[in-house]
Write a protein that binds this DNA or RNA. Structure first.
Lengths: 247, 247
DNA sequence: ATATTTTAATTGTCAGACATTTAAATGTCT
DNA sequence: AGACATTTAAATGTCTGACAATTAAAATAT
């Protein structure tokens, strides 16, 4: 384990980066124990607070875990998809909301990425994912469902579709794209007619997946993408009109 | 800004989570200043070290930035795609290497996701992305190029392909899938014949993109996916045979 | 008015202490 | 000898107080 500090600003950041590199390049293996805080102080010639701030940075990135007690210490963490998920969602969501990403751009990305899963889902989708899709479709038909709940169910449906591809890497990469769209989707209000149309398309997609018909599912997804964009467009026009009236 | 602590283990983790939620739910807006470390100590009734460890966790997640000096403090950071990128790559890379994700699974995800970009790239690819693709193809034909450099160039080619779609969300989401494959790709050695074949397919794809022919590009990508899988298969068989010989 | 210096607020770092947790070592009883 | 209880030691978690470094604004001097 080699320790070299870059020319960054804060010591804790430099130390964290140094250890991160050691993990990335294989100098530190999974479950290997890092030197104790005291030893790290000696090696980097900094105080314990600084070392601890560095370790907290690494912990926040799921790179290490710490244990207290006699045989405790900081250990290189075997990061799991479950650990990485929430981080990914948080980052994606903030990226969209803080960078004026248009609904079109986000939507395009989402459907493009989902379309990539469809052939695999049609080929391998398991009964329980299909069951989830059906259940969500059913929920979407219920009266009195708030727009937010409808959106949440929509997200759940599409998540199941992606998970149906049975590829954990895809699921991880795409979860962000789909879930982070929810706040944007929540800005749309759905009329009764909209919901019926969406449920129809969801059903069409689920049927196609169940029957292993990738092309049909793709077609359904395409229609859904177009329809969603249309809805967003309406919302934008309504909002623009309202603004004009107020002037 | 509401502060409630969960029943987690470490105080710094609870405090970080509390502030993270305030950012996520809009209580804290972009560029808004957090209370100073001293004030946070009072509000959470903890020492400054604990507050600082919490802030470092948030900084590591690109949620805040800090400034020193009179008008300094911690501010909600407007996370940029550039900031999120490296984090995404690190996480994806470690996920693959630490969880025994098979080459097939990772490869499948990569090509699925790339295929999602092809129609958009064919439609909108800008000259400079195309130029990058051509340049990388050219690099791949040079003699004496190490396997690692070849792989790196391969990654650069595919990154340009994705960027050609002109959708920053797609670029972000997919960068992880593509770049994190590099360590796995590096385990493959390329014969002269392999390289010629790959360069041919890259050229085919670039030509199709340039001509706006999405279907042709998709076909090329499909061939490339199959060929890559075949290569990986060969490597696996060679390795198995070698192992058998040693017994 | 402009340039310079001082000041105050804030984060960054350090040092040392004590609290808490945990496993291993030790001791005690049957 | 084995089972249970106690002690010990090592490690992280937290607290306190101090000083350094940075920076914008206020005060001062030119």
């Amino acid at each position: 384990m080699k320790y070299t500090l870059n020319q960054d600003s804060e010591l804790s950041s430099q130390i964290a980066e140094s250890i991160r590199e050691a993990i990335m390049n294989g100098s530190l293996l999974v479950d290997e124990r890092l030197p104790s805080e005291g030893e790290l102080c000696d090696r980097f010639e900094v105080s314990r607070s600084t070392v601890r701030e560095a370790l907290k940075r690494l912990a926040a990135q799921n790179l290490i875990r710490t244990q207290r007690g006699a045989t405790g210490g900081a250990f290189v963490k075997r990061i799991s998809f479950e650990d990485a998920y929430p981080q990914q969602i948080t980052t994606s969501t903030l990226l969209l909301s803080m960078n004026d990403v248009s609904f079109e751009t986000a939507c395009e990305a989402r459907f493009a990425v989902e379309r990539a899963c469809v052939p695999l889902s049609a080929q391998r989708c398991k009964p329980d994912h299909l069951a989830t899709m059906r259940a969500e479709i059913h929920r979407q038909t219920q009266n009195g469902l708030s727009d937010e709940s409808f959106c949440a169910s929509d997200v759940a449906f599409h998540k199941a579709l992606v998970e149906g591809a049975g590829n954990p890497v895809l699921t991880y990469q795409l979860a962000g794209a789909i879930e982070s769209m929810q706040p944007l989707m929540n800005m749309i209000t759905f009329s009764e007619r909209d919901r019926v149309k969406i449920v129809d398309l969801h059903t069409k997609i689920a049927d196609a997946i169940e029957g292993g018909q990738a092309a049909a599912a793709d077609l359904g997804l395409d229609e859904l993408a177009n329809y969603t964009m249309t809805l967003a467009d309406q919302v934008r026009q309504q909002r623009a009109a309202r603004k004009k009236n107020m002037e």
